[in-house]
């Protein structure tokens, strides 16, 4: 197994799927010559040419709308929206169109489009460029929403997303592109609806996605030094939510701390918490705790930004309050 960065894993997934299926093409702002704001599409223009690596103007609505239109005719567009914040400009295409088309037309047509986009903060990009908006999409029936935390998952899930016949919102995180991990040498896919235990434990369950999972893993390492074994469940898929995996883990550990980078109010952690309430109430020995971004627009100033973004310390604090 090779150890590669998340960025490289995503790049491999794109390259492999484009090689496998001539209907797969990538499209987005500055993804060709410039190779993408975060260099995920590096080398693709050279390898596949302008027909299949399409640089666009700054026109998110046109990017997503044309992607939908092409997908309805059977192509498999993989759209890059430079950061998740800019999808808001094209939310109508995502929510009123991509998510609705199959159902509204009685199953006569599908929209096999994948929209890749990074969210997250921590790099002083301020209020309009630092958001974690996954819940905006996870709210909507008809969309699949995934947010991997490791290079291996990123590669296997992106390949699965491209092959999936539904619109998939594939959420990356700007602070994870350089994180490294083992990726199998042989071809593999990872299902789009399964959480995974990233670290087994018996005393408490940490549940997160994307960067939240990494915070949870770090916190679990720290607790292990004190003899406390935390289980870390990585959601991976946000819609559908793998309720069975969530409930199974907490049935064993009886305690849960939920972690997300975004605002917890009406957030992913709120949904997971409701799931536990409905299906694991009798197994809980303590209230469910949530850790998320502090509920303000992201400030620029470093000390303020540091105070907003969830930290390992805050995960530990939440865990200790219920252990």
């Amino acid at each position: 197994m090779a150890v590669i960065a998340m960025r490289e894993a995503l790049n491999q997934a794109l390259r492999e799927e484009m090689t496998r299926d001539g209907n797969v093409f990538v499209m987005g702002e500055d993804i060709g010559v410039f190779e993408g704001s975060y260099k995920v599409t590096a080398g693709l223009l050279k390898e596949f040419g302008e027909r299949r690596v399409v640089d666009t103007p700054i026109a998110e609505e046109a990017i997503i709308g044309t992607g939908i239109g092409a997908a309805m005719l059977g192509l498999r567009p993989v759209l890059e929206i430079m950061t998740i914040n800019f999808i808001l400009v094209a939310m109508d295409q995502v929510v009123n169109h991509a998510a609705k088309i199959r159902y509204m037309f009685g199953g006569e047509v599908g929209v096999p489009v994948t929209i890749r986009t990074p969210g997250g903060g921590g790099q002083q990009l301020t209020a309009q460029h630092s958001q974690s908006l996954e819940v905006f999409f996870a709210h909507v029936p008809g969309l699949r929403v995934v947010a991997p935390s490791t290079p291996k998952d990123a590669k296997g899930m992106l390949k699965a997303a491209i092959r999936d016949d539904n619109p998939v919102i594939f959420i990356e995180n700007i602070s994870l592109y350089n994180t490294r991990g083992e990726v199998p040498d042989e071809e593999y896919l990872i299902p789009l609806d399964k959480a995974e235990i990233k670290r087994p434990g018996r005393d408490i369950t940490f549940i997160g996605h994307s960067k939240g999972t990494l915070l949870a893993l770090e916190a679990a390492d720290r607790l292990a030094q004190e003899g406390i074994e935390a289980e870390v469940l990585d959601l991976r898929s946000l819609r559908p939510l793998d309720c069975d995996a969530i409930v199974e883990s907490v049935k064993r550990t009886h305690r849960a701390v939920l972690v997300e980078e975004g605002w917890p109010t009406y957030g992913i952690t709120a949904e997971v918490s409701a799931t536990l309430m409905e299906h694991a109430f009798d197994y809980l020995d303590a209230p469910v705790k949530r850790v998320g971004g502090i509920e303000v627009p992201m400030p620029y100033s470093k000390p303020l930004e540091n105070a907003v973004i969830p930290s390992v310390e805050r995960v530990l604090e939440a865990a200790r309050s219920i252990l």
């Binding site: 700054i58 914040n85 808001l88 301020t126 209020a127 309009q128 400030p299 620029y300 100033s301």
Partner: peptide, 22 residues
């Protein structure tokens, strides 16, 4: 300190902002 490079503002001088969504 809330806005940084992209969000200068001064209502008194009618400088109504740097904005970051194109």
């Amino acid at each position: 300190g809330r806005g940084g490079s992209m969000h200068m503002f001064d209502p008194g001088r009618h400088f109504m902002g740097g904005w970051a969504i194109v």
